[in-house]
C-alpha cells in the first residue's frame, strides 16, 4: 500500500517543532507500524536525510517503550494494543496518517517522537515498592494470599508504564499509572505496612511532576494497551483519603 505520513519533527527539547510530510510506497500489510517507520527511515537515509527518532525496544508489546500518537490516538486506533503490535493491515492504501509524540507537560520531547518519561520513575521511587531487604524474606508460602486478591493485584501489575494514559487524558493526568502500582501493592498483605505512606508520597510526587488532575473522563483506561481498569483510580482515591484522615488524627 502507499501512504502519506505527516510526522512530527523536532530537533531538540528547545526547538518548537513542526510536521513534515513524507510519501511511502509499497508498504507490506504484514509489517508492523514500527516496521513501516523503519522502512520510512531507510528511505530517508537513501536521500541522505537523518531518520526520524522514535522509541521502541522489545517490539512484542511488553516493554512499554514505544510511544506514538497515531491519528490522534495513543498507540493508534486499535484497542488493547501497543504501537509495536499495531499492524499495517489495519490501514488502507492511500491513507493519510498523522504521527506525533505522546504529548504532556510532564513528558518533554527529547527529539522528534522521543519523549522523556522519567517523571514516571520518580513516582515509583516515591513509594512504588515494598521495602524487602534482600535475604530477609520469610518462606514464600508463609502468607497465603486469596487467589482473587492475587489476581486483582496482577491485573494492576500488568501496567507497562508506557504513558498512553497520560497522553490520552486532556488533563494529562497520571492517575491510572499511579493507581495501578499503588493498587497492585496495596492489595497484597506484604504491602500493608507502607500503604499510607505509599499513597501519600506517590500522589504528592505525581502532582509535583506536572501531571494534571483526574476528572474521571476515562480516556486513560480506553487507551491503555493492557486494559487497566478505572477501579484502581477509585481505590487510590479511597486509600489516599483514608491515609490523609489517619494523618490528621495522628
Amino acid at each position: 500500500m502507499n501512504l502519506t505520513l505527516k510526522v512530527w519533527r523536532q530537533s531538540g527539547p528547545k526547538d518548537s517543532g513542526q510536521f513534515e510530510t513524507h510519501l511511502i510506497e509499497e508498504v507490506s500489510e504484514d509489517s508492523s507500524f514500527l516496521e513501516m517507520m523503519d522502512q520510512l527511515n531507510e528511505q530517508l537515509l537513501e536521500n541522505g536525510i537523518e531518520p526520524i527518532a522514535f522509541d521502541h525496544d522489545c517490539r512484542e508489546g511488553i516493554c512499554g517503550m514505544c510511544s506514538l500518537t497515531i491519528n490522534g490516538f495513543a498507540h493508534g486506533p486499535e484497542d488493547s494494543t501497543t504501537t509495536c503490535q499495531l499492524h499495517m493491515r489495519k490501514f488502507n492504501d492511500g491513507d493519510i496518517i498523522t504521527i506525533e509524540p505522546f504529548r504532556a507537560r510532564a513528558f518533554p520531547v527529547v527529539r522528534d517522537l522521543v519523549v522523556d518519561r522519567s517523571s514516571f520513575d520518580k513516582i515509583i521511587q516515591a513509594g512504588g515498592f515494598i521495602s524487602a531487604r534482600t535475604g530477609s524474606a520469610p518462606d514464600g508460602n508463609a502468607i497465603p494470599i486469596p487467589k482473587e486478591d492475587a489476581d486483582k493485584a496482577m491485573d494492576a501489575a500488568a501496567c507497562i508504564g508506557c504513558g498512553a494514559c497520560v497522553a490520552s487524558c486532556k488533563n494529562a493526568s497520571a492517575m491510572l499509572f499511579t493507581s495501578a502500582k499503588a493498587g497492585h501493592l496495596n492489595l497484597l498483605p506484604q504491602g500493608q505496612a507502607e500503604k499510607d505512606a505509599r499513597v501519600l508520597n506517590m500522589v504528592k510526587t505525581m502532582d509535583e511532576s506536572g501531571f494534571g488532575n483526574c476528572r474521571n473522563y476515562g480516556e486513560c483506561s480506553a487507551a491503555c494497551p493492557k486494559d487497566i481498569s478505572l477501579d484502581y483510580i477509585a481505590k487510590l482515591n479511597r486509600d489516599h483519603a483514608k491515609a490523609k484522615i489517619k494523618n490528621l488524627f495522628s
Binding site: 515498592f129 515494598i130 524487602a132 534482600t134 535475604g135 530477609s136 524474606a137 520469610p138 518462606d139 514464600g140 508460602n141 502468607i143 497465603p144 494470599i145 486469596p146 487467589k147 492475587a150 489476581d151 493485584a153 496482577m154 501489575a157 497492585h184 501493592l185 497484597l188 506484604q190 504491602g191
Partner: peptide
C-alpha cells in the same frame, strides 16, 4: 531464596484457591 524474595517484594505469582503458590 529467590521465590521468597520475590514474594516479599509483592510479585503477584499465580496462587491456588487456598492462597498458596
Amino acid at each position: 531464596n529467590i521465590i521468597d524474595q520475590c514474594v516479599a517484594q509483592g510479585v503477584p505469582f499465580a496462587r491456588e484457591y487456598g492462597g498458596l503458590l
